[in-house]
Design a protein around this nucleic acid. Structure first.
Lengths: 196, 196, 196, 196
DNA sequence: TATGAATGAGTTTTCATTCAT
DNA sequence: AATGAATGAAAACTCATTCAT
């Protein structure tokens, strides 16, 4: 079991670093310090390995989401908590990898076609977010003139990893500060209040 | 010349559909109806082919942007025009492919490391958007409490292609309508006006 | 006709410089300043082109040999003339290319299997040398205790091109001087006269 | 290890038979009875494979040379032993392949440019031969009126493989007998003793 | 359970040769 | 005769996967 976790850990690192195609089983094995074949005693294929990365601890992660959503706070507060949870939660890296499937051509097919379980997790999260938005609309906190789907898109965009982070983030901001600003934009838009 | 354009056309299709690594020269050739070697009489390598896709007509595209930005309208109007231009402009597909490099792990290296020209185009567009935002801030139209960088992120997120479009878009909305809603969110946020 | 000669000229240059496999029809055409296809209007294949290089002016070359051999001098003198003729004759480069087939793995099959004409030329020259040696033996000038074949080998070795010429030839000798010394060795061996 | 040796063995055969360019990894694999990819688990590239052929047992071979040269016999005897050692020594085939780089255009680049180790081995052997010749000159056994370099050329010529062996060797001589005659020629030249 | 050598299908790329213009 | 775009067979090399030990 420990070994399995170690493989997942390393695989996740390499995957994030190099992308799906530039990640070879050889490199994962070498970094873990085991033989290539050993990986296959734990995971039946490269795809299954990646799916396992996504699935790992995902139950706990979703439980964390549920906890937030059941906190009794206003929808707006809960959404803010959710965005922060995605950003710096215990499983944030996996979450980012998962949301990267939202835009990446890379993991597209992997997720959409084969691994039903990953797809389910994804749908599960999306439906929770949708439910939260709907609540916020009913409560009058969120706009009613925009579809829930569009809002989901916006939210997912914020928590998706951006390849050019390192290019665009200057010395003025940390990634964390940028994230806060994006939340603010998500909530209030870029238009100056006086102009509304 | 016609043949070259045809190759680029088909390559763009396959690239969008399958991603860089799952796109083989063989398939491109087959779909075009030519021999594999023929591609190499027009493009010296797979990388060069992809770079050519990005580069194609990109000058015209950037000229289109310049035209919009010089229209004399308010920054807000110009930004709206820009977002629509990206969405349904003559070269929208290429633009989307380009912005997909914003999130995709796939084309990351291709863009960042080798093809200087693609990188330049990208920087050129980003700096134009940045300039527009700064103008809007000075004019008081855009918020001054959020960094230009964060706004750029938001804007790029909207015009980036989303893999799950087909999944999330139901019967209620067309992609076009969704895009309009995203622009609205970008401008005004998801928070209801009464709550501000 | 002129064009054909120009192609042969250039092809010979490239062939000597790069070897058979690293010589591409493309490069020959480019250097000549014509299109690749044009070469094929003059020579039906790469092999035929190379064979033509060998064959070019070979009649004149062989006539030159005949002239030497008919000079009425002693076999020894005639052999010496022959070696020099090979070395700096008008067609020495082609001759060297030809004799390079004596050791090179490169042109081996090309010569031995297909091009009957080249093979014939080669046999023609070898038989002339053999005849000269036999004469020398009869005249008592050449040793009778060594087979004519061995002598031919030695002679061909001397006139074969050596790849490492440039490495081994120092500042002390020119290629010409080295050649003279090799002739001397061929005639008298490396053993000091006092020791015989 | 056995497998690696088998590959080297077969590769050597094919290389000798067909030359570098006409030897495909596919054919080597097929002849060995293994898959193409297997070769690459042992040798990282075609070049490395060929370099390994040269390097194989070469240390032992050079030790054999050292043993001969330290035998205390006269330079002439030692040279004779050396030539025979090259001819029928345990590693004669590899040695011949090595000396073939002396004339072949084929392996020229492979040796001269990349594989430093092969180049070193070559230089090592050449310098040993040079030293022996110098000794012989000092001892008065070898001629002083001919440069050491020329003598090296002659000696290397004798031990180089000759493509046309099979053509020129008739029924009268074996390759071994021919070799002995060439040694005799190398020592005493082709001129009859009475004529000197 | 772990190993790592072996596999072979698949990929990019090259280049002699052809052929419509 | 000349062109040069098009061809396609063949090559080197990669890597996820298998399997005997």
């Amino acid at each position: 079991m420990e070994r399995e976790d170690l493989i997942l850990q390393v695989a996740e690192d390499v995957l994030e670093e190099k992308g799906y195609y530039d990640t070879s089983m050889e490199e994962i094995a070498t970094r873990v310090g085991i033989a290539k074949g050993t990986i296959y005693t734990h995971f039946s294929s490269k795809e299954e390995l990646v799916a396992s990365i996504f699935a790992r601890d995902m139950n706990k992660f979703i439980q964390g989401i549920d906890k937030l959503l059941d906190s009794g706070q206003s929808p707006r507060s809960r959404l803010e908590s959710l965005l922060n949870y995605f950003y710096d939660g215990l499983y944030s890296r996996r979450a980012k990898l998962l949301t990267s499937t939202f835009t990446g051509v890379d993991l597209k097919r992997l997720i959409s076609s084969k691994n039903g379980s990953v797809h389910q997790m994804w749908d599960c999260i999306v439906s929770k977010v949708a439910k939260l938005i709907e609540e916020g609309k009913v409560a009058g906190e969120f706009r009613n003139d925009v579809s829930t789907q569009a809002m989901i898109f916006m939210i997912l965009s914020i928590i998706s990893p951006r390849v050019y982070d390192h290019v665009l983030i200057g010395d003025n901001f940390t990634a964390k500060e940028l994230h806060q600003q994006l939340i603010s934009l998500c909530f209030n838009g870029i238009i100056s209040p006086e102009d509304k």
